[in-house]
Simulated assay, not measured.
Amino acid sequence: MTSPKGTPDRAAGAGPSAPPAPVSAPDYSHELARLAALLADRTRAAFCLALLDGRAWTAGELAACAGVAPSTASEHLSRLTEGGLLVERRQGRHRYVQLAGPRVAELLESVTAHLDAPPVPPRGLRAANASAALARGRTCYDHLAGRLGVALTDAMTARGLLDQDGGFALTVTGRAWFADALGVPSDALCGGRRPPARGCLDWTERRQHLAGAAGARLCERLLEQHWIRRIGTGRAVRLTPEGTDALRELLGIDGAAAGLA
């Protein structure tokens, strides 16, 4: 007996047909091992964490930061660049390196958030102050992290600007707020492979802060308006008196009560 298309039907009582061949998943084991090897060195890890401030550094600056010789730094930077974690920028005779993009920064911040706190606390007053400043507020590549980043995210969520229940998304009201309060048009929050809003797990607060295009534009505007300022040459930022007033008016954030001032 044949089917309407002329294909013989399986005879009644015949055994079951052979199961379909299993579809093998892509094997990422080699690439995962390669990536882990890049970060499995304390000097290279220190370089990557320093570059989370989003800026370009010279090899000499990174060498001083990690406490290694310039020749050692150059060797490690070559490996990180060849491995795709860093990119090189040249300006005249000077060579700068920076993280290859937001996805690398997100990877580093997410991995760090899963680590336990270092068993040995910072030694000395200067190191303790630097650690406290990072926890209070810092840049995570191009967006804000620490207590400041989380406070901004919580306030935006409470006011209906962010939706954390159905994922992590900027609401219609949130897009209007960016345009009206910060002068950031909607088209500046879209485009490319980067989502308008994304949650990033904060490694000190162990909670989500705002990343994505909206997080980058928010950080950019706060720096331009001098509502936050960088502390020295590192990642730490502090809320200015003008910023304290602005965030209280725009988002109802009490900087002193939140430990931001």
Rank of each mutant, 00 (worst) to 15 (best):
E75C: 11
L144T: 00
R123A: 14
K5N: 11
E220G: 11
S131G: 02
E106Y: 00
L62C: 10
R93W: 06
P102E: 07
A256E: 15
D165Y: 10
R221V: 15
A214Q: 05
C140D: 03
A155I: 07
G167P: 05
P20E: 12
A12F: 10
G255I: 14
W57C: 04
Q164H: 03
L52N: 01
R235T: 07
R95C: 09
R95T: 12
A36N: 08
R138D: 06
G83R: 06
A56Y: 05
A214K: 00
P118E: 12
A117G: 09
A179L: 11
L99M: 04
A50M: 02
R126T: 15
G174P: 13
A63K: 09
R89Q: 14
A105D: 00
C219F: 09
A258R: 15
S110I: 03
V150D: 00
R138S: 04
H30L: 15
L108V: 02
D9C: 10
A155E: 06
G13D: 06
T233P: 03
G60K: 08
A64I: 04
R206A: 15
R126S: 14
H76Q: 13
N129M: 12
P118F: 07
R93H: 12
R229G: 03
V97E: 02
Q164R: 15
P102T: 01
R95S: 12
L99H: 01
I253R: 01
A105N: 04
L52V: 01
Y96P: 12
T153M: 06
G174K: 03
T171I: 10
E88A: 10
W57V: 00
G83E: 09
D142A: 11
R221P: 04
A73C: 10
L162I: 13
L51M: 15
L85Y: 02
R221C: 09
G174D: 08
A214D: 05
G191N: 12
A25Q: 13
M156I: 08
S110Q: 10
R126P: 00
A14E: 14
D116N: 12
V120F: 11
L189Y: 02
W177P: 04
L108Y: 00
P22D: 05
A11C: 10
S24R: 14
S17F: 08
G54Q: 04
A56F: 08
Q164L: 15
L134I: 07
C48K: 01
L32A: 12
A132V: 10
R126E: 14
R221D: 05
E205G: 01
G183I: 09
G146N: 07
N129P: 00
L134M: 13
N129F: 11
R34G: 07
N129K: 14
V237G: 06
F168E: 03
A25H: 06
C200D: 00
A127Y: 05
V184R: 01
A169I: 04
R238W: 05
Y96C: 06
L115A: 13
